[in-house]
Computed example of a mutant assay.
Amino acid sequence: MYDLTGFQRDLLYVASSKDEPHGLALKDELEQYYESQIHHGRLYPNLDTLVEKGLIEKGQLDRRTNYYQVTQRGHREIEARREWEDQYVSPEI
């Protein structure tokens, strides 16, 4: 996961929290977090990158709508990242 951008990492995290979300559902969730509009030209190329890296699978709901599912590898990468972060983040007292 070290080679992902922050946006790609956030996209992977959001996708892992949903069951086969479509692109617009991911976009809406990220827009709430970033408090700004996310254009399709940013969203879909980054989803394609995650698919190419084997972290997300892309499927088709209908002729116009795709869904995205985090792969086992994607879940392992998220878990490894969280373990790495935990080394540097002290627990609240």
Rank of each mutant, 00 (worst) to 15 (best):
R81Y: 14
H22P: 02
Y67D: 01
K53A: 02
T71F: 01
K58W: 07
L26R: 06
Y33K: 14
F7I: 04
L4V: 07
L55V: 00
D62I: 08
L55R: 00
D48Y: 05
E85M: 15
G23A: 15
P91M: 04
E31K: 06
V51S: 05
L55Q: 03
S36N: 09
S36A: 10
R82C: 14
S36D: 07
G54Q: 06
D48H: 07
L11Q: 02
R81M: 13
S90F: 09
G59Y: 07
E29P: 00
L47W: 02
E77H: 09
E79V: 13
E35V: 03
Y2G: 03
Q72I: 04
K18L: 14
E85A: 15
R63H: 08
E57Y: 06
T65I: 14
A80P: 06
Q87W: 11
L43D: 03
L61C: 09
D48R: 11
E29I: 02
I38Q: 01
D3K: 03
R64K: 13
H75V: 00
S90H: 12
V70C: 00
G23H: 09
R82S: 15
V89W: 05
M1W: 03
T5E: 10
T65W: 07
Q8L: 00
R42C: 06
Y88D: 05
L30G: 02
Q8P: 04
E57Q: 07
G23D: 08
